[in-house]
């Protein structure tokens, strides 16, 4: 085989293999998945004062409407700033890894509380936790309605529902 043919073969293989590497990288570039986190400056302070938050039916008693998309917001505690979109299934809160909202909170129990929809409203139920769940200033026992704006305290964590 002539020297020229050999050189062409040799270099063309290198070009081909690098083309493969580059096209893999191009695929990765156009194949981003997961969650995109965008910073929103100044919103953290507003979050701390829920009275500022625009609520559709803040003061009035909420009409028993169909539960639209609701957001669960952690206001205080180690996970402050976490939001969770609720759809139509129940949410388990606690320290166990199987919970929907896994609290990194030493005062919370493994399976602490459950928030679930019923007849278009959201209810909260304590699952026999050690330190209890507090809605406003009373301890939650039997399932009771948790309307948007009410603050639920679990250990050091304060949770609120937002429309």
């Amino acid at each position: 085989m002539s020297e020229l043919v050999l050189t062409v073969l040799r270099l063309s293989f290198l070009v081909l293999i690098w083309l493969l590497v580059l096209s893999c990288l191009r695929t990765l570039r156009s194949d981003i998945y997961g969650t995109r986190v965008g910073a929103r400056a100044g919103s953290r302070r507003r979050l701390g004062r829920p009275s500022d938050a625009p609520l559709d039916d803040g003061g009035t008693s909420p009409a028993p409407q169909r539960s639209g998309p609701v957001t669960l917001v952690v206001l205080a505690g180690p996970l402050a700033g976490t939001t969770l979109n609720l759809h139509s299934s129940a949410v388990l809160i606690g320290r166990a890894p199987s919970c929907t909202l896994v609290l990194d909170d030493d005062y919370a129990s493994g399976r602490h509380a459950r928030i679930f929809p019923h007849d278009g409203r959201w209810f909260v139920e304590d699952l026999g936790s050690t330190n209890g769940s507090w809605l406003g200033d009373h301890r939650v026992g039997e399932p009771e309605p948790m309307d948007p704006g009410l603050q639920l305290k679990i250990g050091q964590t304060v949770i609120e529902l937002r429309k």
Partner: peptide
């Protein structure tokens, strides 16, 4: 606080098929 937006990849596998050619 940050806004979180979920990006879901498409289930089309044509890219894989195209990459199989040079591979």
């Amino acid at each position: 606080m940050a806004t979180i937006q979920a990006l879901t990849p498409s289930r089309s596998r044509w890219r894989e098929l195209a990459l199989l050619v040079p591979a």
